[in-house]
Amino acid sequence: MTEIKVPIIGYMNSPYLEKFGIPRQPNLVQVESYIEMLEPYNDLLAFEGINEFSHLWLIWQFHDNKNQQAKEKFRPQVRPPRLGGNKKIGVFSTRSMYRPAPMGLSVVQLKEVKKVGRSVRVYVTGSDLLNGTPIIDIKPYIQYSDAVLDAESGYAQDQPERMAVIWTENAEQQKQNLIKCQNLDSRIMNELEQVLALDPRPAYQDDAERIYKMNFAHFDVSFRVGVACITVTEIIQLSA
């Protein structure tokens, strides 16, 4: 079997510091992130005309997939989180990371491409990529051909429901202190609430008393999940 080698053109810089909490599809959360382009792809000439497109396709690599890296035997079926994590379905009927080629595909909204020092950065919103994800290619999204309005999406036809997010008095005080003392952009907290509202827990976990922890944008966030709401109990800044 012939293997195809592809270049890495850049790396994603995003607030998703771990797999836990990453939305299961792009554009569910309008998180801002950027791609740091590598040489020789960090040439603004390569992006001439890209501002005429509102959205982009990102082709990327599942780089933190330990089972994939170990080159385990091909598994024809997986357990999608959308089906509760218990029901098996064919791998080619899912977007699971456990697949023959560790490649992902995401649509994101383009904000801007700009030079920062010697670097060229592609700023986007709506990404579902882990911080440090290798980017393989960038392509423009074509509305008339890429958007299929009457498409059927099987078990994932409907968007996931969003839960209310509330803060305990202690967590709210911690949040306000971070915003004031660390000169923190309140946008980060808005993005955090969008992530939490999607209930980041594995589908098979349902313990109302359990305290979950998640690293997001260099913060350690603790929360509980109730019947209809997420309660943030603590937020602290991670050590540099």
Results as ranks from 00 to 15, higher is better:
Asp207Gln: 04
Ala217Glu: 13
Ala208Lys: 13
Val227Trp: 02
Arg201Tyr: 07
Ala203Gln: 12
Glu193Leu: 10
Pro202Tyr: 10
Ile230Thr: 02
Pro202Thr: 13
Phe223Tyr: 11
Pro200Ala: 13
Ile230Leu: 02
Leu198Asp: 00
Gly226Val: 00
Thr231Gly: 01
Cys229Ile: 02
Ala197Lys: 13
Asn215Arg: 15
Phe219Leu: 11
Gln194Pro: 15
Ala228Lys: 08
Ala228Val: 14
Phe219Arg: 08
Gln194Gly: 15
Ile230Lys: 04
Phe223Arg: 06
Tyr204Trp: 15
Phe219Tyr: 08
Ile230Glu: 00
Asp220Ser: 14
Val195Leu: 08
Phe219His: 11
Asn215Cys: 10
Pro202Cys: 06
Asp206Ala: 05
Tyr212Pro: 01
Tyr204Glu: 15
Arg224Phe: 04
Lys213Pro: 05
Met214Gly: 05
Val225Ala: 04
Pro200Asn: 15
Pro202Trp: 10
Gln194Phe: 14
Asp207Phe: 03
Ile230His: 00
Leu198Asn: 03
Glu193Val: 12
Val225Lys: 01
Met214Gln: 15
Thr231Pro: 02
Val225Glu: 02
Arg224Thr: 06
Ala228Tyr: 10
Glu193Cys: 09
Tyr212His: 14
Ala208Gln: 14
Asn215His: 13
Arg201Pro: 06
Gln205Ser: 06
Gln205Pro: 12
Arg210Asn: 01
Tyr212Asn: 03
Met214Leu: 15
Val195Ala: 05
Phe223Thr: 04
Ala217Gly: 06
Glu193His: 12
Ile211Asp: 02
Gln205Ile: 13
Thr231Asn: 02
Lys213Arg: 09
Ala217Ser: 09
Pro200Leu: 15
Cys229Val: 05
Lys213Trp: 02
Met214Asn: 13
Val221Tyr: 00
Val221Glu: 02
Val225Pro: 01
Ile230Arg: 01
Ala217Val: 08
Val221Pro: 00
Gly226Asn: 12
Gln205Arg: 05
Leu198Gln: 00
Tyr212Gln: 03
Val195Glu: 07
Pro200Glu: 11
Tyr204Cys: 14
Gln194Tyr: 14
Leu196Tyr: 03
Leu198Gly: 00
Gly226Met: 05
Gln194His: 13
Thr231Lys: 03
Pro200Asp: 14
Glu193Ile: 10
Ile230Gln: 03
Pro200Tyr: 14
Glu193Thr: 12
Tyr212Phe: 15
Gln194Thr: 15
Leu196Phe: 09
Met214Arg: 06
Tyr212Trp: 13
Cys229Trp: 01
Val227Arg: 04
Ala217Arg: 12
Arg210Met: 06
Asp220Thr: 09
Phe216Gln: 01
Met214Tyr: 03
Ala203Phe: 15
Phe216Asp: 02
Leu198Trp: 01
Ala228Ser: 12
Asn215Met: 09
Ala217Pro: 10
Pro202Ser: 09
Arg210Ala: 04
Ile211Leu: 11
Arg201His: 08
Arg201Glu: 04
Phe219Thr: 06
Arg210His: 09
Pro202Asp: 14
Ile211Tyr: 02
Val195Gly: 03
Asp207Trp: 02
Lys213Phe: 05
Arg210Trp: 00
Leu198Val: 00
Gln205Val: 11
